[in-house]
């Protein structure tokens, strides 16, 4: 089984988010970056599959050299080698094209990634890459088991789950439950020193979207408590203060 796992490099979940004065760029100073947690789940599942059935796990990241520590962590977790497409990940279309360019013709049986990155939360990548490569793409999988070239996946759907069967090659995006993210051990960290991290240049692709500005959520407002039987007061406040009716 030859598996490609796509990972994003995202701010740690405890990061205090700030932007530059024009609100156009995320302020990365002092921010610790980590493997996108959903991608970590996908990577762990890929490693589990190859540990059981044999094969290789290649990690793919579209980004600049500043992401190399994140890629090394993926190698320390147990991936066999890594590819970094040397370009800033400008938008989903750009990244999807870079992934499909690397994966096309490379013989991967399975391409895994997280359901979304926890920074931009686009949730588009698995579908975009599937379309570009013309292979099946299954999103938001809670489990994935392989029997030969057939995979059974449980998908999270509104109010329940869906069970699907798909043949390799295909793409799946991972959600919580597919695997318990693995903590690198010392042997893994030591072996990651010498695992290959191949840097390739990006192919020329137009971006289809442009980020104009960022803003953080407004702070919570004051809470006004209204007695349960005082509906007149509630209606008045909804009219005059909340201005929602």
């Amino acid at each position: 089984m030859k598996i490609l796992v796509c990972i994003s490099n995202v701010p740690d979940t405890t990061t205090k988010i700030t932007f530059n004065s024009e609100q156009t760029e995320f302020n990365t100073s002092g921010v610790q970056f980590v493997i996108n947690p959903y991608d970590e789940i996908a990577l762990t599942r890929a490693i589990e599959i190859t540990e059981k059935d044999g094969g290789t796990v290649t990690v793919l990241h579209v980004g600049e050299a500043s992401a190399d520590p994140t890629i090394r962590k993926a190698l320390a977790m147990g991936a066999h080698d890594a590819i970094r497409v040397n370009a800033a990940p400008r938008d989903a279309w750009f990244v999807a094209n870079q992934i499909s360019n690397v994966a096309n013709g490379a013989g991967y049986d399975l391409i895994l990634m997280g359901r979304e990155s926890i920074d931009h939360n686009g949730s588009q990548m698995a579908a975009l890459v599937g379309e570009l490569m013309n292979i099946p793409s299954i999103s938001i999988c809670k489990s994935l088991t392989l029997e030969g070239n057939k995979a059974t996946v449980d998908r999270e759907i509104e109010g329940g789950k869906e069970v699907a069967i798909v043949e390799t090659p295909f793409i799946a995006s991972a959600s919580e439950g597919m695997a318990e993210p693995r903590i690198p051990n010392m042997r893994g960290i030591m072996s990651a020193r010498t695992k290959p991290l191949n840097v390739v240049e990006a192919v020329a692709v137009d971006t289809l979207s442009e980020i104009i500005s960022y803003d953080t959520p407004k702070g919570r407002g004051q809470v006004t408590l209204v007695e349960a039987d005082n509906t007149d007061k509630l209606v008045e406040l909804l009219h005059t203060e909340a201005k929602v009716i």
């Binding site: 405890t14 520590p69 903590i183 690198p184 051990n185 010392m186 960290i189 020193r193």
Partner: peptide
């Protein structure tokens, strides 16, 4: 959440941080 008031992480290598973060996660 570990305090790092003087950005001392910048004095560590990437491998130091990976070792530390793995121990912290464990």
């Amino acid at each position: 959440i570990a305090p790092d008031y003087y950005l001392l992480d910048e004095l560590l290598t990437e491998e130091h941080k990976l070792i530390r973060d793995s121990a912290r996660a464990w």
